[in-house]
Design a protein around this nucleic acid. Structure first.
Lengths: 227, 227
DNA sequence: TACTCACTTGCTTGTCGCCAACAAGTAAAA
DNA sequence: TTTTACTTGTTGGCGACAAGCAAGTGAGTA
């Protein structure tokens, strides 16, 4: 966050147009994140963002079209960082292992980049508003993650590590809802959530619910019948 | 929602001051719910609320102090309706039965009063914003529900229906997070969630995770050792 | 019981500062 | 010279506050 615009490199060389936009774009997105974390989206003004980034009040609108356009851009930028984090954490894993690795990745994301994690949850919450102009971005991200979980489960079933009577879509929705809900509770009341403990429990539950059992052990359908 | 203020009862009798405030309060809260559902909190204006309720643009501020005060009042009013629904649905149940009954109560709440359910989730999401002036209301409601779940679990352990090595607080957090997350996903993308199916699965999982097992069956701690 | 008058309360209107959006303009790069 | 990055002037709309109006209230008096 430069306190004044960087219109030239230290040695006095002029910047190209592309460099200038890249620099100002980045400065405005970072300034927006800081201000959203401090004041929330609606009490963050475009003037404050522009000036904190080292520019005028008008540049944000000029570059992103509108305030909603900026929020969408922030949402996409931070989501991209999280998805890279997730991708690296899960690697080539699949089945229950992938689901556990994703939980670990999220735990690390929250502790390594709490700034990103918090602003992302704030923006996802903002997307719940009717007429939100970046709701689709949130829906797409969540859908993409849910699809990933579905494919992990199907791979697990194919590999024989997950019981074949599992409803992949339903479990995936449950899994994504759990993470989303936990993050919300953590955001509004950080002290009330022990993420590490919660994740350890969740991993245990996943194995209990999904793990293929040796023949003879009662399965889910049997348990269902007992209800 | 009267199209014009009701300043007297049909027979021409004047209203008492208390009746007038009760009528206008209710009209403004209901108007606010409709407008929030249609436009979201930030694009809902106090003028629109006042006029839809049949009054002037100034009454909302006069009565609720500020826009945030109004949102807090709406949040409390709708939360109260949900908690009564929950109370009636759960009754005297405890343990796993209470947790399943609460899931059913929520399912019925969503299908019977989708207006309330949606606006409540929108407001809870708004409470995630830093400097939200009604965050505490959301935190209190969630905390209260979580405490209820804890007491159900402890009662279940005492009654022998829930395995004694259960971490009540952690399970309660998981349970509340699941409901919260599911509701969010339903709100932003209604088609993607089959609440009935999800709830049936959740009930199954709860029994699988919490049910006290006859001696000899492997418990959670044994499963843990296998990890 | 009926009337009165000072007081309180419900509600409206005028006004101010602030904000997002847009358009016109300036300066720097190509 | 043309294009692009960025700034500044302006406008309409919003929330908040304060002043004012009108309707309701209740104690005192006869």
């Amino acid at each position: 966050m430069p306190s004044q615009p960087a219109k030239s490199v230290p040695d006095g060389q002029p910047l190209t147009q592309a460099e200038r936009t890249a620099i100002s774009d980045h400065a405005m997105l970072e300034a927006a994140i800081d201000l959203i974390l401090e004041h929330g989206t609606d009490k963050t003004t475009l003037q404050a963002i522009g000036e904190k980034a080292g520019y005028s009040r008008g540049l944000v609108t000029y570059r992103f079209g509108s305030k909603a356009g900026l929020l969408d851009a922030v949402c996409k930028a931070v989501s991209r960082r999280w998805l890279e984090y997730l991708k690296r954490g899960v690697g080539k894993a699949s089945g229950i292992d992938a689901m556990c690795a994703a939980l670990d990745a999220f735990l690390h994301f929250v502790s390594d980049s709490p700034r990103d994690a918090r602003v992302l949850q704030i923006l996802y919450c903002g997307a719940a508003s009717p007429r939100s102009e970046y709701r689709q971005t949130s829906v797409n991200i969540h859908q993409r993650q849910q699809d990933d979980v579905v494919s992990w489960i199907l791979a697990g079933i194919a590999a024989g590590t997950i019981r074949p009577d599992t409803d992949a879509r339903s479990i995936a929705a449950h899994y994504i809802a759990y993470i989303s809900g936990m993050t919300y509770l953590w955001l509004v009341n950080p002290g009330s959530i022990d993420f590490r403990k919660a994740n350890d429990d969740m991993k245990l539950h996943l194995r209990l619910i999904l793990a293929a059992t040796p023949a003879g052990t009662p399965g889910l359908t049997d348990l269902n019948r007992l209800q």
